[in-house]
């Protein structure tokens, strides 16, 4: 019995650094957000307990719902585009053409760079007057100031930054497919398209699942690039993504309680979306490529 207790104590001792990290950097912030959601606090004056009043206020104020819709549209723009382009890039890299290693590095560079800095650079490129893109096109398009163009423009920049990241995972996934499977298909007379649709794509489902889940979560939480490109929610709040709305609510309006409620709302949305994705893929994915 003493030995069992001793081993348990040793185990907890070894786990302590990790547990400390989880408690301080994960559990504690969540508890603070929960506490904030139940209080009215403007950062400067003492907080007051208001129960669910913040929830009611956020529900009545249409801006949170609007930002959720904007974010959903943003996700609908970015996820299919970055997944398809990332897969296409990975297929090209996987062919082992000359210079593909350099291409791979160049492709990943935007993902490595700080999104805020990239946003500033793209803001210069997309500026209406004297912007590089308009100068190149010889026209004057208000890419970031026109409410109809702002979100697609921001989404395009986001896709540009993420394609390399997605491609990296697809390259790894492609290289994990046993060559024998493709060789057998060739012997059976399958053409390139048939092999892609019936072998490559199904066997990439674990990778696709991972890329989609992390991509959707990242897109729902996107902030930096959108903030740099179109601050304050953009023209007519057309780029008012939910992470930005939370930031503006907390640090500009100083309605920290409302921001906490919005953060919890985003958390619930992400859990639901992730569970749906997980269930959909669970029935269609195999991780065993040995048979």
């Amino acid at each position: 019995m003493r030995g069992w207790r001793g081993r348990t104590a040793t185990a907890y001792l070894l786990l302590a650094p990790s547990l400390f990290g989880v408690a301080v950097f994960l559990v504690l912030p969540i508890l603070v957000v929960l506490w904030l959601a139940l209080h009215r606090w403007d950062i400067l004056t003492p907080s007051t307990f208001v129960g669910l009043a913040n929830v009611v206020e956020v529900a009545r104020d249409g801006r949170f719902l609007h930002s959720l819709v904007v974010t959903a549209v943003f996700v609908a723009f970015t996820i299919p585009a970055q997944t398809v382009l990332g897969l296409a890039a990975a297929l090209l890299i996987n062919r082992g053409l000359r210079g593909s290693a350099i291409y791979q590095v160049v492709l990943v560079l935007p993902w490595i760079c700080a999104p805020l800095a990239l946003g500033v650079v793209w803001r210069w490129i997309l500026a209406p007057t004297d912007g590089a893109l308009n100068t190149l096109l010889g026209t004057r398009i208000e890419w970031l100031a026109d409410p109809a163009l702002a979100l697609p423009s921001v989404a395009a920049v986001s896709v540009w930054t993420q394609v390399g990241y997605v491609a990296l995972f697809f390259v790894a996934g492609l290289r994990a497919i046993p060559p024998a499977v493709h060789e057998a298909a060739v012997l059976d007379g399958a053409g390139p398209w048939q092999r892609f649709w019936r072998i490559t794509l199904p066997l990439l489902r674990p990778t696709t699942f991972f890329v989609l889940v992390t991509g959707v979560i990242a897109s729902f939480q996107t902030f930096d690039a959108v903030y740099a490109l179109t601050p304050k929610g953009g023209p007519q709040l057309s780029t008012d993504v939910v992470a930005g709305r939370i930031y503006y609510e907390a640090f500009e309006s100083r309605a920290v309680g409302n921001a906490a409620v919005m953060a919890l709302g985003l958390f619930v949305v992400l859990v639901v979306v992730t569970v749906v994705q997980q269930r959909w893929f669970a029935r269609r994915t195999t991780y065993d490529l040995s048979t």
């Binding site: 504690l28 912030p29 603070v32 506490w35 904030l36 606090w41 950062i43 003492p46 907080s47 930031y247 907390a250 640090f251 920290v256």
Partner: peptide, 13 residues
């Protein structure tokens, strides 16, 4: 707890 919250929100900011 408001100081803790301020510290956490400052870290987030």
């Amino acid at each position: 707890i408001t100081h803790l919250a301020a510290a956490v929100t400052a870290a987030i900011a």
